[in-house]
Design a protein around this nucleic acid. Structure first.
Lengths: 334, 334
DNA sequence: CTGAAAGCGCTTACAG
DNA sequence: CTGAAAGCGCTTACAG
């Protein structure tokens, strides 16, 4: 293990100067910095972050800009993941502050982001970006001194992001539904409309797979303002329908259909909420396919920690969230 | 955050003495040790392990005694988990050495265990114990100075263990099979015999759930020396059989049945191997339910690290391995 | 049985 | 722009 001291000796400079080069300080002559960095790379220097954490006078602080989803489970799990990682890392003087903003209010996120960057000069940010382009505009001037990780959308090729992969989740749901039904059993698919996030992708993935397995699909049926017009579902829910898939409003639909649906209707959905969990336990919903959400917050946090403490040596540019299949007997694990 | 220095000041002793008390040294008067430990507990002292790791002169070393399962996937995943954790922790001067022994040779494990404890005096061990009682006899004299974590079987109430929970996995498999079939569809269950580890538990769990969902079960059918008498399965595999469950020899059975089974037979099993993965991808097997294995090695390693570096403050005494449901579309994630 | 002291690898005021 | 020095919280030879 090569140390700053060794670099200093080989170059005939002081440890302080080496530290400055390595930490991207400005109080250093460009040529000096250059030659130190070159040697460091050449010798494969890796900072020992036990030493650096211990020496740190002030906390490293990261702000996490989380858009508050209508699905409260999503938001609370993301936060739990961030806090979980932060808890493990607090001995390193590492602190993540969470800033929640309305998912429908793009401007709120942008304003808070801009204000915090200006006032707090954080060491890093985690963000679930709503407007990619504007977010990039705002953070651009800080990119030299600040690390960035995004959740959900990819910002640029070089910024690490945590990827939920809703398309794949939909495909898995299609796979399960296809196996639950016989290939000619009638299946009804409700199209919940596009929420600009996951819904459309789930549905596309679902179709990608279900069409291989089932030849009797009704839909995707789109009903304007579905929550106020639940009754319309009944028009499609003939007694021969054996399966139902929807990825939005699933719990409300199931609730509504309670005494109105064909017996033994198999219902599959994507995502998890408290309500869906109950419905799975009650065997009203057969299965759901969800992305692990806690993990998304956790991985994003760990990654930005690594970026800040160990530098950009990580070659990984994205992380695919894990997908889980939940039936009644394992839903209690999530 | 309270430090050793503060404890020392309050008690009018040196930092060295405090460190000795906290590290369980013998070169210290019992009363001194006593009063230091009491104050430490009172003030909620927690060792900063950045400091201690940095100061450590020699590595902390743990030996992991892993019984080599016939399922090579299991062994290699456990090892991968151990190495994964070790990689993350190597900056702490922490090293895990893996010792593999034959799963059918209880004595080999015991002998190696005894030899290593005597010669190497490790700081900790991880073990998949084959003979609980004898393992306890061997490690008892070292328990004062050595940490222990077991995988699979629980050793004592106070020793942390990673628990695979095969019973639950079997139950989940039963749940899935029950949902794949209609309640009167005929289901054939093969009893692979007890392997003293998982097989019996899987089967019990499977029955616990399937009997709620299906009323037409043939079996569990036990066939002596199954691998040499595959033909006998055909006696039970009448054309009306819609589902087949087995948790041992699944891949071989599927292979054998290739052109001999009823069309659209739904096959569910427990566990994962290279062969099963292929068969799921080929849609010869519909689903499997597996315990996450990598994680078992990883969690065991992280836990023993915490025990060694942070002391016994952990209140947790066991960890249940995660269970995963695998269909064709998500088998590639594992 | 106890303590003063060096040192792990780093950061960062402070002085120049 | 650069460096000598103190200090983060701990461990551990060394001397007594």
């Amino acid at each position: 293990m090569i140390t700053q001291e060794e670099l200093a000796k080989k170059l005939g400079v002081s440890r302080t100067t080496v530290a400055r080069a390595l930490n991207g300080s400005n109080n250093i002559k460009p040529e000096t910095k250059e030659k130190i960095l070159t040697l460091a790379k050449e010798l494969g220097y890796v900072k020992n972050y036990l030493g650096s954490s211990l020496a740190l006078k002030s906390d490293k602080v990261v702000y996490a800009f989380i858009a508050k989803s209508k699905n409260e489970n999503y938001t609370s799990e993301i936060k739990r993941g961030i806090k979980g990682a932060n808890g493990e890392l607090k001995e390193y003087n590492f602190k993540i502050e969470i800033i929640e903003t309305d998912i429908n209010d793009t401007w709120e996120q942008l304003e808070k982001l801009e204000a915090i960057l200006k006032e707090k000069r954080p060491d890093g940010i985690i963000i679930t970006p709503l407007d990619k382009t504007r977010v990039m505009d705002i953070i651009a001037p800080y990119m030299e001194t600040m690390k960035v990780v995004s959740i959900g959308k990819k910002l640029t090729d070089t910024i690490f992001h945590v990827e939920p992969n809703y398309y794949k989740s939909g495909k898995v749901a299609g796979d399960i539904m296809g196996n639950l039904l016989n290939s000619h059993d009638k299946l009804l698919v409700i199209d919940g409309g596009d929420d600009n996030l996951s819904s459309k992708k789930y549905l596309d993935g679902f179709y990608e797979r279900i069409e291989e397995l089932n030849s009797n699909i009704e839909g995707p049926v789109y009903i304007e303002d579905l929550l106020s017009h639940m009754g319309k579902i009944l028009d499609y829910l003939t007694p021969d329908v054996k399966g139902l898939y929807t990825n939005r409003y699933a719990s409300q639909i199931v609730e509504y259909l309670k005494d109105k649906k064909p017996e033994k209707l198999k219902i599959v959905t994507n995502g998890l909420s408290k309500k869906i969990r109950e419905q799975i336990l009650n065997q009203e919903v057969t299965a759901t396919v969800m992305e692990e959400i806690y993990e998304q917050g956790y991985v994003a946090s760990k990654h930005i920690f690594n970026l800040i403490y160990k530098g950009d040596s990580e070659k990984q540019r994205s992380y695919n969230a894990k997908i889980h299949i939940l039936f009644r007997e394992n839903v209690d694990n999530f």
